[in-house]
Design a protein around this nucleic acid. Sequence first.
RNA 1: GACUCCGUAGCUCAGCUGGAUAGAGCAACUGCCUUCUAAGCAGUAGGUCGCAGGUUCGAAUCCUGCCGGGGUCGCCA
Length: 577
Amino acid sequence: MNIFEYVKTILLDIAKSRGVEDDILLHKITAEPPKEDIHGDVSTNIALLCSKKLNSNPRQLAESFKELLVKNTYIDNVQIAGPGFINIFLNKNIFYECCKNVLNIKNEYGRSNYGKSEKVNIEYVSANPTGPMHIGHARGAVFGDSLANLLQYVGYNVTREYYINDAGQQIINLAKSVYIRYIEILTKKEAVFDDDLYPGEYLIAVAKEIIDIYGDRFLSCDEQNWIKVFKEFSTNAMMNIIKEDLSLINIYHDNFVSEEHIKSIGLIDKVVKLLNKNGSIYEGVLDPPKGQKNENWESRPQLLFKSTLFGDDLDRPLKKADNTWTYFAADSAYHYDKFKRNYTSLINVWGADHGGYIKRIEGIIKSISNSKLKFDVKLCQLVNLNKDGKPVKMSKRAGNFISMKSVIDSVGADVLRFIMLTRKNDAPLDFDLAKVKEQSKDNPVFYVQYANVRINSLYKKAQNHGINLNDELINVNFDLLNNSSEINIIKLIAKWPRQVEAAAKANEPHRITFYLNDLASAFHSSWSLGNEDPSLRYIIDNNMDLSKARLALAKIVKIIMASGLSIIGVEPVDKLS
RNA sequence: GACUCCGUAGCUCAGCUGGAUAGAGCAACUGCCUUCUAAGCAGUAGGUCGCAGGUUCGAAUCCUGCCGGGGUCGCCA
């Protein structure tokens, strides 16, 4: 039950009955909560939008709509404001109905079939298989996973996907690094690593594994003899480490696609053929990059994708000077592969440093799908890791980057997930390792969870009064909930389905976190009223009817909290540690 | 130089894809625990939504041009 949808249905019927049939116009009709309470419960622009079509001035039109609206039993009053807004004041009963509905359907409240089971592919994490995940990876991981939860919640058929970059130079470097460890173990000579190699100690275990199986047979032979085995072993081992890291924050992908595999099945040739057929590629020469000097620049003709046709500032090379395919070529093939799997929409979650890459992939997708496939890239900005306000230094080069696992060990998986969604994805995020452990209202995780804790304590106390909150409670008398603080909570409850849908529409899971914060705040506020006026407490000794109604309200808050937290992948806390 | 994201209260940020008098939280000031609900709550103050144009009934939101900050810019992935 979504009261805003309900009102919108009424409005659409009215518009249609007046002969408005333009779908685009009908689509623009809104039924939304006004910012200010004095403007009622639902506000609509219907009269403003239809005035031209119906040849009438908006205020007059609004008057005639008003006559129709007031006939509805759920509508108490209708006011016309400003240039022609219609403000609708709903009867309390519709809100009480909404509450009953939540108690009835529990965690189904807010779920919908908005997505109509459409197939959506979300590619996220896709960290290079060269080592454990660091904290920078965590944001995209949590964002992508929560977005996947959110879209599932509103009825999409979601595939969670991971693209493994296991084909490039970095994997060769990884294999070489393991080989150095291999030699180190067998010969006891200290390992020395070049700049582009990986000195992390996590590779020692991989080398040992290889020794267990192959012994020292690779010790004094050429690279071509060992490279394949080492590559395979290393990437598998790294992917296992990454999967293990991800499992710590409950992230499990449905599908892992290997770049190497994409290449080996000849998909690049296929996509290049298709692009060629579509007139999207040509042999050409690029200008040297402006603004920065590059003495190694050498102009040469190469195979280029016409990404400038799709808004990019340069055409992009598909082949390197040595005639091998670029990363971009393989990625094009990968997106072609996704296209062939019949999704209606693709979402990629990338780090902000990949911003310049969007246009060309967008171009590829437009070219191969004839602009039919929906594509959205969500960029996640950097995470600034602090401790007590001071930045934690990290340097990946030296191998002492802050691993995601160490942060989880320190603050817990739930805190990590929650904090990652306390900012919009394209805003930088400050993450203070000390602050997130504080038990105070300055810590958003605590603030929201504390509302749960308080409700849970109500559950226990209610039992002493013979009320079991696990019972249905549907027959409680919601009419008794009429102080402004309770009404405030009820109105927030009514907004939940709308919030979920808006968050899904925008691919912005952070909105769920913000909503939860608002809901917690409304609850804390109403709870605290009991400090000054005992008659405003949730449990009133000599008034069981009122107590039941308030407890039912608390239960509803708990239900929605649980739903919201489940979307962001966090467990509700029932008591303080 | 080009592209891209961002610019909203002293600070950190929301703002429901164009709605009405722009909202929170910190910090500041003021209140609320002898008792069952203070890990919290209530209140005050704080704004030229970077600047200038444009689009329309209506702009923080869309378009254009500037200003400032981050990111990216062939043969890395």
